[in-house]
């Protein structure tokens, strides 16, 4: 009797599972910036879901049931890669039972695969904290990277949904043009930032620093992902006396304690950067993210 029940259940499952999926492409983005980019490229051909919000630490997310459910009905996963999501995304993908979005399939896209990685560690050892063997994964704050990811994402969307190819191409062209124009504007505005020495809370900004020519003196975290102790901060304060930084940069999702402590003593501003779309009230999309980031940096410089 019981095995009959199981058989009936299995038959029911197969019938329900065979129901057709919705027409629009469901995109599962691991972080808000790729969700925003997918909206730019996909337009109304895609339904975009962002697995995290800007106030969450993308390293530490739980493989929540809601994420598994979303991954189950997605046709494309857009992740950062470089092990940023290693603590949760592999479980979400495996548990979803969705064969189309497993790594290696067209339905799984990693943004880090198309950009040049910075801070690739020469040695990989957990004694060094949260080390990412593939390099620093916070690639989104260099607009040149965004452009490359946009290109690759459009190609991937076309692969997953060939019917929308024309739309993706047109959207990409429009986005690229607008983005390049914005980059000229940003680079002009950011000229005073060139060579400005800064401290960073976590190594979140190497790509931003690389783009703008900021001089990162070091991170407040003694090791990636490890909260700084008072002795370490005192050491940084000493170094600040020797080579004085203009400001301390901190992404919106991190704890303010350490940055505020140092900022107060060194009498330099702590600049809280949105870090991703939604990280500040102003950063409503990718363009606004960079507008707001630059505005905050320039304000910090004064």
């Amino acid at each position: 009797m019981f095995s009959k029940l199981i058989l009936r259940l299995a038959a029911f499952l197969l019938i329900v599972a065979a129901l057709p999926a919705a027409a629009a492409v469901n995109v599962f983005a691991s972080v808000p910036e790729w969700a925003a980019l997918a909206r730019e490229i996909g337009g109304d051909k895609v339904n975009v879901f962002s697995a995290t919000n800007a106030l969450q630490d993308p390293h530490r997310i739980e493989a929540r049931p809601s994420l598994i459910a979303r991954a189950r009905s997605s046709q494309l996963v857009v992740a950062t890669g470089a092990e940023l999501e290693i603590g949760w995304l592999p479980v979400v993908l495996r548990e979803s039972g969705n064969a189309a979005i497993q790594p290696g399939q067209p339905g799984y896209f990693e943004a880090a695969s198309v950009v040049r990685m910075l801070e690739v560690p020469a040695r990989v050892d957990r004694a060094d904290g949260d080390v990412h063997a593939g390099g620093n994964p916070h690639i989104q704050l260099d607009p040149r990277n965004v452009l490359k990811v946009a290109d690759a994402l459009a190609a991937r969307l076309t692969l997953v949904d060939p019917a929308g190819a024309v739309v993706y191409k047109a959207n990409l062209a429009r986005f690229s043009e607008k983005w390049k124009a914005a980059m000229v504007r940003w680079e002009q505005a950011a000229a005073p930032l060139k060579g400005a020495p800064v401290w960073v809370q976590h190594r979140s900004f190497p790509y931003l620093a690389d783009w703008l020519g900021l001089k990162e003196l070091g991170a407040l975290e003694p090791k990636a992902g490890v909260e700084p102790g008072s002795a370490h901060l005192a050491g940084i304060l000493e170094r600040q006396k020797a080579t004085s930084a203009k400001m301390i940069l901190r992404p919106a999702y991190t704890r303010p304690t350490a940055s505020d402590w140092l900022g107060e003593r060194a009498r330099i501003p702590v600049v809280v950067l949105p870090f991703t779309v939604g990280g500040s009230a102003e950063a409503t999309d990718l363009f606004a993210l960079f507008d707001d980031t630059l505005r905050r940096l320039l304000a910090g410089l004064k």
Partner: peptide, 17 residues
């Protein structure tokens, strides 16, 4: 055997022998 429903609410059904 496990099955995840294609719904926004997470629903997983499973059976084992």
């Amino acid at each position: 055997l496990r099955w995840v429903a294609p719904t926004e609410l997470f629903l997983e059904l499973g059976a084992e022998a």
